[in-house]
């Protein structure tokens, strides 16, 4: 419940007006789901999905400059825009590591190459301006050839932390900072898989989890945390998870744009007998 006091401090203002965030001539209906979060530095981080399945050669330089197919950051007053992340296809999930402040994000990969490639991605960014390879590479899969698409000079590509099930559509992600889930889920990353749309055998519609290596901080491997929204016999969805968030009690909320529902997942240990 917002008190009158805190409500009085809420201010709605335009940070990046229409036509400014994305130039009017580059507006598109494709890959327009945006995520934005305030980082540990107080800046706003906004992912800008690129409008094509794979962008044409003549858009690469322009998009790289604007941050389309990237993540930009700006001050809360709209000033100081810079491209923070390069070489992204369409990221619809990001969160900052609660201790290191590093930005982690999911990325959706190319359609039309086959049901089993290329893999989805979970990425870890350790410095501003890093390039994650798109459209040249998606993890170990080459997407466009360097002979046709000259690669930018003096750029190395950061490999993803995890290769995820192809076309499962990894979307909203969040570090677990609560304490009510069992020990094995402390401090790792949860994310929503929306599920595939045109794969012959649908995959996804799950909530996934990875623990982080206590030494290196790297992701240790994706595991299924919650599923059951996809009937594998019939290939029918009953729900499609979009995003996750946590309540103060440490329980998880999962938004679902197919069932039109928000699910809550809480840990209810059986009392000792």
């Amino acid at each position: 419940m917002a008190s009158a006091d805190s409500a009085a401090r809420l201010i709605a203002a335009v940070v990046a007006p229409q036509g400014d965030l994305i130039p009017a001539e580059e507006e598109s209906f494709n890959h327009t789901a945006r995520v934005c979060d305030v980082g540990p530095d107080g800046k706003i981080y906004i992912s800008l999905g690129q409008p094509f399945n794979v962008q044409p050669n003549d858009k690469i330089e322009l998009y790289d400059e604007i941050g389309i197919g990237g993540i930009i950051r700006i001050n809360t007053d709209g000033s100081g825009r810079e491209v923070f992340t390069r070489g992204v296809r369409n990221s619809v999930g990001q969160d900052f590591h609660p201790e290191t402040g590093e930005l982690w994000w999911t990325d959706n990969q190319v359609d039309g190459m086959g049901d089993d490639i290329p893999p989805g991605e979970l990425n870890r960014q350790t410095s501003a301006g890093e390039h994650f390879g798109f459209p040249w590479t998606n993890s170990r899969v080459e997407i466009v050839t360097e002979s046709e698409f000259p690669r930018p000079e003096n750029v190395s590509f950061t490999e993803p932390q995890l290769e995820l099930t192809a076309h499962a559509a990894d979307l909203g992600m969040s570090f677990y900072a609560g304490s009510s889930f069992p020990e094995q889920y402390q401090s790792g990353i949860f994310w929503a898989q929306h599920g595939s749309w045109n794969r012959i055998d649908p995959v996804g519609a799950r909530v996934m989890y990875t623990a982080l290596d206590p030494e290196t901080g790297d992701a240790m491997g994706a595991q299924v945390f919650a599923d059951g929204w996809l009937d594998e016999e019939t290939g029918e969805y009953s729900g499609r998870p979009m995003d996750i968030a946590f309540l103060k009690d440490g329980s998880m909320l999962v938004s679902d744009d197919f069932a039109g529902a928000i699910w809550r997942i809480a840990y209810n240990p059986q009392p000792a007998e």
Partner: peptide, 19 residues
């Protein structure tokens, strides 16, 4: 019917749209 498995997530396997 086999190809329609690529269509069903949006259009339904029977052609009744899902979205």
């Amino acid at each position: 019917q086999k190809i329609a498995r690529m269509c069903r997530t949006c259009h339904g396997i029977d052609g009744y749209a899902q979205i």
